[in-house]
């Protein structure tokens, strides 16, 4: 549980830094959508996050049928996806 929490915080920091967000990493609601009503990110951000994730965690994000909506459903979902696929 501790590792999950710290990865979540790490990913929050990665997002804030990669996207130059005004929000503090700890202010990102881990359950809120990253896109749309939540953080309000867009496709430019999705590519930035994909780039930052590939550099930091050594794997590539992919589109599936639901596009990025499942992985980017929330900070928690993204952290869980990284936890499963990371090679670095």
């Amino acid at each position: 549980m501790t590792t999950t929490l710290s990865l979540e915080q790490e990913v929050a920091r990665l997002i804030v830094e990669a996207l130059h967000l005004e929000t503090a990493p700890e202010d990102i609601d881990p359950e809120a959508p990253l896109f749309g009503d939540g953080l309000g990110l867009d496709s430019i951000d999705a590519l930035e996050i994909a780039l930052a994730v590939s550099k930091r965690y050594g794997f590539q994000l992919r589109s599936d049928d639901e596009r990025n909506h499942r992985i980017f459903a929330s900070l928690r979902a993204l952290a869980a996806h990284i936890e499963t696929h990371r090679t670095a």
């Binding site: 590539q60 992919r62 589109s63 596009r67």
Partner: peptide, 12 residues
């Protein structure tokens, strides 16, 4: 037909 969005999608 796609979907093609991320770098890895483009390569695939």
């Amino acid at each position: 037909a796609g979907p093609v969005f991320y770098p890895s999608d483009i390569e695939a």
